[in-house]
Simulated assay, not measured.
Amino acid sequence: MRVYIGCGGFSNEDWAAPGLLYEGVRKDDYLSTYAAHFDAVELNSSFYGIPGLKAFEGMVRRSGAQTRFAVKLNKVFTHERAPTDADFDRMLQSPEPLREAGVMGPYLAQFPYSFHRTAENRKYLQGLAERFAGHELAVELRGADWDLPEVRSGMAERGLIWVSPDYPPAGGLPEPQLHATGDVGYLRLHGRNAGSWWEGQSAAERHDYRYNRAEMDEWAQKIALVQGDLSELYIFFENTTKGHALKNIPMLREALNAHGVPVATPDPAARAVDPGRLL
């Protein structure tokens, strides 16, 4: 099993604080700096606006084509749920530079908690699976009403990847378990800030949590149990607030290696990217 570990987004401005990854780094160099340390990233900007071909070409260049990109579906697919044919075309075609460079990970459909398991929503999800057939599509369903074996079985039949989450113990959310619906797994670690999950005014507040070593060891044990079922596993830390994820990733790498799941730590010197270099 090849494990890819990264963060939810790379343009985190609070990482420019003293002692963190982007201290003294120009914003234009954030991605090249990130790519020197992590082998995967979850692209958040595509949720707000689908980047064009040139934007994706720039991502490949700045990352040195050495970091996998999981591309989040635009909100028109998951929150507004009224995509046009043009939206599908752009979402499917624009990341082509990532595919050509061999760094395209799964698409991510992050549905809101309000997307409950109704007949209408099940039909919508079926239609989305059909339109993305032939592409890896990971689906995060935040309501506990979806957290059922029969749902995962149906997703497996349709080639969809169940997003395994780690949410706070706040009620109404799926359990923190790692499930496989195919040979690619997808884990999102949101932190366990129960006090801010429902009441938080921003994603930064909700994700203001740093895991301890025992919690990372707990996840390493769960991952070790499924490594024979998966060829690839993507792990993304969403607790990027205050650089929490930057501290937790080394913890998880260490725990995984201790549990017999080999994970390499990228060598920043070897992976350093010249942002001006053309591929």
Rank of each mutant, 00 (worst) to 15 (best):
M1N: 03
F10I: 10
F10P: 07
S11M: 11
N12P: 04
E23W: 05
K27G: 05
D28S: 14
S32L: 11
Y34I: 02
Y34M: 01
D39I: 12
N44P: 08
F47H: 14
G52N: 11
F56V: 09
R62T: 14
S63I: 02
A70Y: 01
V76A: 12
T78K: 08
Q93V: 12
Q93Y: 08
P95C: 01
A101L: 02
G102E: 14
G102H: 14
A109F: 06
Q110W: 06
F111V: 11
F111M: 04
P112A: 13
R122W: 13
V139F: 06
E140Y: 05
A156Y: 03
I161R: 02
P169R: 00
P169C: 01
A170V: 13
G172L: 07
N193Q: 00
W197P: 04
W197R: 11
E199L: 11
S202R: 06
A204I: 06
E205K: 07
Y209R: 03
E215P: 02
A224C: 08
V226S: 05
E232V: 06
Y234M: 07
F237L: 14
L246Y: 04
M251F: 12
L252M: 04
E254S: 13
L256R: 01
V263C: 11
T265L: 08
P266W: 07
V273S: 03
P275V: 13
G276L: 15
L279S: 11
